[in-house]
Design a protein around this nucleic acid. Sequence first.
DNA 1: ATGTGGGCGTACCGCCGACAA
DNA 2: TTGTCGGCGGTACGCCCACAT
Lengths: 631, 631
Amino acid sequence: MINVMNPSKESMKEVESCLDRQLWHSCAGGMVQMPEINSKVIYFPQGHIEHAQVNTTDLKNYPKIPPLIPCRISGIKYLANQENDEVYAKIRLIPLRKNDFDFNDDDDGFIGSNYDMEGSSEKPASFAKTLTQSDANNGGGFSVPRYCAETIFPRLDYSAEPPVQTILAKDVHGVTWKFRHIYRGTPRRHLLTTGWSNFVNQKKLVAGDSIVFLRSENGDLFVGIRRPKRDILYCGGSSYGGGEGGGCGGGGFGAFLRNDENRMVRSFEGMGSNNSSSSNNEKMRAESVVEAANLAANGRPFEVVYYPRASTPEFFVKTGAVRAAMQVQWCPGMRFKMAFETEDSSRISWFMGTVSSVLVLDPIHWPNSPWRLLQVAWDEPDLLQNVKRVNPWSVESVPNMPPIHMSPFSPPRKKPRLHQVPDQIPFADHLPIPTFPSRLYGPNGSGPGSLFGFAEVVPAGIQGARHANFRQFLSDHIINNKVNYSSLLSNGPDLKFHHGSSFSSKKPIVRENLSSFLTMATTLQEETPKENDTMTPKFMLFGKPILTQQQISESCSSDSAKTGSNSSDHDNCNDTSMNRSSSSGGEFPSLDSDAGRSLSLSGLSSCDGLYKKIAQHVWQGKILEAEQCAL
Amino acid sequence: MINVMNPSKESMKEVESCLDRQLWHSCAGGMVQMPEINSKVIYFPQGHIEHAQVNTTDLKNYPKIPPLIPCRISGIKYLANQENDEVYAKIRLIPLRKNDFDFNDDDDGFIGSNYDMEGSSEKPASFAKTLTQSDANNGGGFSVPRYCAETIFPRLDYSAEPPVQTILAKDVHGVTWKFRHIYRGTPRRHLLTTGWSNFVNQKKLVAGDSIVFLRSENGDLFVGIRRPKRDILYCGGSSYGGGEGGGCGGGGFGAFLRNDENRMVRSFEGMGSNNSSSSNNEKMRAESVVEAANLAANGRPFEVVYYPRASTPEFFVKTGAVRAAMQVQWCPGMRFKMAFETEDSSRISWFMGTVSSVLVLDPIHWPNSPWRLLQVAWDEPDLLQNVKRVNPWSVESVPNMPPIHMSPFSPPRKKPRLHQVPDQIPFADHLPIPTFPSRLYGPNGSGPGSLFGFAEVVPAGIQGARHANFRQFLSDHIINNKVNYSSLLSNGPDLKFHHGSSFSSKKPIVRENLSSFLTMATTLQEETPKENDTMTPKFMLFGKPILTQQQISESCSSDSAKTGSNSSDHDNCNDTSMNRSSSSGGEFPSLDSDAGRSLSLSGLSSCDGLYKKIAQHVWQGKILEAEQCAL
DNA sequence: ATGTGGGCGTACCGCCGACAA
DNA sequence: TTGTCGGCGGTACGCCCACAT
């Protein structure tokens, strides 16, 4: 019992700040990217409601609350639940006033400080392993992968017989746990023995949970746990009020995969105290959400609690991501891909789907909200049954073209090497960080009768179909919710230029040209490299090592098969097509820079009406004028 | 593991209503009396704040919230914490409008329904035992007191060798626990063996916790646990703003005794998940209190959460108790006694003290509040260090007179019998339930300059000393916070006629004439009779068996010694003096009944100004007129 | 390289009567 | 009557290797 500290009330306050941020991220999972301090995000009250899994009736009847509120991140506290070690964050947000908010200028002045943070906190060595049955159940031992023992653990003296040492690791609460690390057996292997069983019992670990070992810069060892993502309880979306719209959509970005054939079942027979998610709900009460949303709507600073392992999309999204997503002309029939964490949380898989309709989720209570705007059909509907609606910024549109042939069906080799492809990697480096200068996206005005860019696809029973002829793009290609795919593809150039991740700084972004040969499944293995030779330079993508070809084909061979079959021989996903969209030519009228900035809110390509409406909400009635639509 | 149910989220809702009310009360402890549905109580926001242990700054700055709000109990849900079995209640209160509230008529129309409830739910057989070290730690066995085995448990077949049976008992969540009950050893004794250790571990019981066995009318067996009262964390009372007043007063009615010499220390080394009180705090957030108080102040129904094992006084008090307490002319120097639960929660002890000053706790934020009005000095200050301020209705004033001689210092006999005193018991039965007909308490008006009955003893620096000459009673007897005891006693007839318990229905009330021979310490042993012959009729006080003389002298011999020495030979505490107060003679002017009812709010003997102020707060500015003070 | 199963020693859990208060 | 202690059995934990993938 020497390992367990006395968690008194006083110590809780301390714990609030002592949690190592890298450890927090390790426990949060590879897909979680937190915004930097002072960066600008869009806060979605709808998403907050989903995240808190509370009844929405409290908030729905507040007509004053807009569907999205631009904010600045003023503070983040990285915390962990005392009972079950679940990491969460308390985030302070300051709503942006009109003068402070420029949709196209979301990184102004704060990149420097971001760089400072990045520079000082270099990614420490970490390793994650999903517990096997033997790790969790039998004999009280943990089989340590060699890579972990050799690169994360302290150096073991192999001269002793057997080589053995004591490992001390701090958990998220600062509690130190002691393990006996021994190298024995035939063949030799690394094991944790004494102390491990106690840890498993205390933390209530079961097979399928992940454990993270992390070595900080000064050599201290940390241990974190990462359980499977919580189940999706909320299945919101108002189904009353005559709204049809294809049912509610649970899940989304941040959901996890349920691979039923290989599923690890968590046993709840242990003790009554592990119904921790219910006590989490206690913290996330409806009042908190109502309070936060009300403060936000009134322009006052507010605080939200964010659980990165909840199965709902982030409800605060970096402004640039939203902007980029709304620049896309979302239409039924569009192809996209979306990242999901695998059930064991060790990897990330990309899944393909088709937009089935573009439709406001709850037009009565949240008119014009882009939250879960896209109703989607998955190429593998059985695996993603619960994910029926997604956020535009959660997905990444892909053109209907085949990947570069790199034989996804080739049999996995014993020691796959990707040296055959790195000569294409500099290609990715040539991609400019998409800054989307505002002048490139001039105001494409819409008449006074069409405030809502996508209102045309809302069923007539709700808002009435407004087939205004000035909305040429949509009306040309979408007739009665059916899409003319070919004309859509040829006319929608910026279709390919947004990124599907909320925070672009460190997110594993796979752009179209990369995805053209990585196809659709990417395995993030920065913590669990599986190559034989760990000294071989890794194949890196934006600072993260990339998986072997074998792993790719293992993790999503079915994906490749399907997309490989239904895609044709387009190959215009290249530098040329990109430059086409980032130039001011074509159907985009060029504007002088100042005008473009001042009109940036209403100058988005496809959602100007939406953001006009937003501005109307946020800034309380001040309607921005001077829209001109060039489309 | 067969005993442990899977506490899923769905079952939580069910549990909310399935908790047996008698079991709830057994777990709540002997001093907790809940009000009946539809009865009238006074809600104290200050007490709510203390109870919730939240920061008061949120509420203090709401000047609209009165210090007390008359309410009607509209609903009570008896609940238990899923994690630690701590019982609590959700109570719905409806603030009373002016027309509905008559301070002297608090039981109108609802006594019948109360009687119905009392009649249907006869007190079931129950037994409580505080766990010994052997029960909690060693060998996984529980030593069952013979009384419990023979009267609570199912009948054991003694013909078998050894006599053994299986005991099934439901806990507060409806979970059934199985125990092996065996009668063995030399000498023979009842033991719980198999199953007990598991129960101790699951419930995290330690020595000092109490376990309650309860047999319902239909023979079902229940098991509850009752842990020591929570520590006093809150030590409120504003010490800023120039208020002197003698520091903050933690504790109070409902606090528990810390008997350091025999203290059982709860070990927190088990697991991090037993910091359950912190999660309780989560439920009792400041917002909830603010919300409740605001709703109450606006006359709207509200809900409060009440933890009977918290160490703060009840914040909702039966109207009659408050009225009775405020009829007492509280003055420095007055003697009183107050009930406390012993640390092992098995008994109740009465402690003597002296009022040191009568002083508003927080005159700035809660002017005229009677909450913790009395600053007290205890005869045994070492045992009650934290209890510096108490509520008037929590204590019971006692005249300075000696008890009837019944030799409290006589050596305890082996089999004490109280048959010598029952001939005095009918005396108690003759006591009328104090109804205090309103016409007996005519309005004793005060001039416009003296709204506050006890403002005279507030330090001049805060409100200024108002020595208005129309307040003859107080000014006659209290000069510079010093009291003329003899004249006070002779002039304050209703001094002896209030009861110190919040709810009079089933509370173990020890009135003055009873306490005159029971002295000051009363041991409630309805669950743990200790007489040798359990078949002997118990010495009952209001339906509860009373302790033996031995136990009385054991539990508080020091009390008896002290009061015996400083009290003189008064003996006017008798039937005659009671009738004197319930007649309309003397200095109380008689009033016609209607006028008395309509003026009841301002017609209290010593706190008319206070309640006028209350009415002013509660009913938003409507000041009641027509006070006439007869004192 | 590492997951799984079985052997096996030991530690602790838990049942017992013997005392004693 | 019942709290505590030491004895002592049985179980199950946990360390180990063998074997398989």
